[in-house]
Amino acid sequence: MARVDTGAKIRTKDEGGLLETVKVVVQALLIALVVRTLLFQPFNIPSGSLVPTLLVGDYLFVSKYSYGYSRHSMPFSPPLFSGRIWASEPQRGDIAVFKLPKDNSTDYIKRVIGLPGDKIQVVDGVLHINGKAVVRKRVEDYRTTDPYGRPVSVPQYDETLPNGVTHRVIERDGDHGYWDNTYVYTVPPGHFFMMGDNRDNSTDSRDESSVGFVPFENFVGRAEIIFFSIDENASAWRIWEWPWTVRWGRILDPIR
């Protein structure tokens, strides 16, 4: 039987396979983009400002939906709109990722301490909120390093915020570090006051020239869970070293 030439190009098996591969890759990238923008974004901890809660080498997921969405919820923060949609304000005690107000691009992670309208002050290392000292209880010392990298034991406390959230803080320089005595900060409307749990080794809202008050629009999301953790001086790509460099006990720890 004679075949009729319809003018259609017949795809070879290799061409069909390549096209399917490209489609799968594109779909996977789109799904990843949607998940990263709307649901969860991974971050890693490069500094010790939230020790003992978060350690250098922790990898965590941040929920993007917790506070609603702003332009900073999307990669590269495109100026598509201002403010937030489906907004839900951060709660005192949340650990949140935000864009540094100074440049609106650098990612910072700190704990929410002050809400709009609050008055925040530190007196001899003790946090005060709206004129009342926050309750803190001395617990066992924490092993860390001093500014020269030498191992030291430092005071550690359970600090309980006015809404009942309890978390640990350390005072590497005791109660007389650089930021352990401040004036009263009044948090403006639509802004939040952020601090690290490593109180003497945290650049946060106490330093108005570097961080200051954080606009609600700058929030990226709330830290939820540690999905991987590796020793500070180890490399994650050295898989063969994982048996002794991965902090197995921290994996899947919820962040509080």
Rank of each mutant, 00 (worst) to 15 (best):
A2G: 13
V4S: 04
T12R: 10
K13H: 02
G17Y: 05
G17D: 11
T21G: 11
V24W: 13
V24D: 03
V25L: 13
Q27C: 14
A28L: 15
I31G: 13
A32G: 13
V34E: 06
R36W: 00
R36A: 05
R36E: 00
T37A: 15
Q41Y: 00
N44C: 02
S49Q: 03
P52I: 03
P52R: 07
G57A: 09
L60A: 13
Y65I: 11
H72M: 07
S77D: 13
S82N: 13
S88Q: 09
G93Q: 06
D94I: 03
A96E: 03
V97P: 01
P101L: 00
N104V: 07
T106F: 06
D107I: 10
K110E: 09
I113F: 05
L115Y: 00
P116E: 01
G117I: 10
V122H: 01
D124C: 05
H128L: 07
I129T: 06
R136W: 12
R136A: 04
T144R: 11
V152N: 04
S153A: 11
S153Y: 11
V154G: 12
V154F: 07
E159V: 09
P162S: 10
N163G: 13
N163Y: 10
R168N: 08
R168M: 01
R168T: 09
E171V: 02
E171P: 00
R172K: 13
R172M: 14
D173K: 12
G177C: 05
G177W: 04
Y178Q: 11
D180P: 01
T182I: 10
V184T: 15
T186E: 10
G190Y: 02
G190M: 06
M194R: 02
M195Y: 00
G196D: 09
N201A: 06
D207M: 10
E208L: 14
V211G: 05
F216L: 14
E217H: 04
N218F: 05
R222C: 03
E224H: 00
S229L: 04
I230F: 02
I230R: 08
D231H: 09
N233W: 01
A234L: 02
A236K: 10
W237M: 04
I239R: 01
P243Y: 06
W244V: 08
W244H: 15
W248R: 12
W248L: 14
P254A: 00
P254R: 03
P254S: 00
